[in-house]
Amino acid sequence: MSERWLQEIQSIDGVEGSVIFSNRGEIIDYIGLEIHSESMKKLAVYLLRLSGAYVSKGQRISEFEFYWVNKYIICKNTDQFLLVTICKSPKVYSLLRITLNVVLANLLEDKKFMKDIKSSVSDKTLFLKRGEFDETETQIIQKLQ
């Protein structure tokens, strides 16, 4: 299922690991990462909140990218799941992007994977309504509404 495709990403030199989150922030599958840490769960929440903010404005984020000199994170956002890949450096950019597009297309066409993930699909703005928010988040979410 998704394991094979995550392995494809993992085989790229410089990739530390990948994780697939559902729209509820649940981990569907992962490779190469210390995934049970609180930070990973929060990562999903923040990405889903930001995605939800755009959905509330009638737009859909398809991709997030974070650049540091020695770290690169790319997140592919679909209607059903988030695919997050963490790399040691943005130098792997070209090959990684091609691979991610292939993996994404295959995951979206994988009937079993999509069937399993379907139960996790929920309202994209869920994370704007539920959870713990800091003061700034609360203020901005009010303005967004």
């Binding site: 930070s39 923040y46 990405l47 755009y54 398809s62 991709e63 974070f66 540091w68």
Partner: peptide, 21 residues
């Protein structure tokens, strides 16, 4: 949220952050 993500990952603020909508 970008700053929050950097904080939970114990990283500095990213040099660049992009989103495609």
């Amino acid at each position: 949220e970008m700053e929050n993500i950097a904080t939970v990952l114990e990283l500095d603020r990213p040099e660049f952050f992009s989103l495609t909508a």
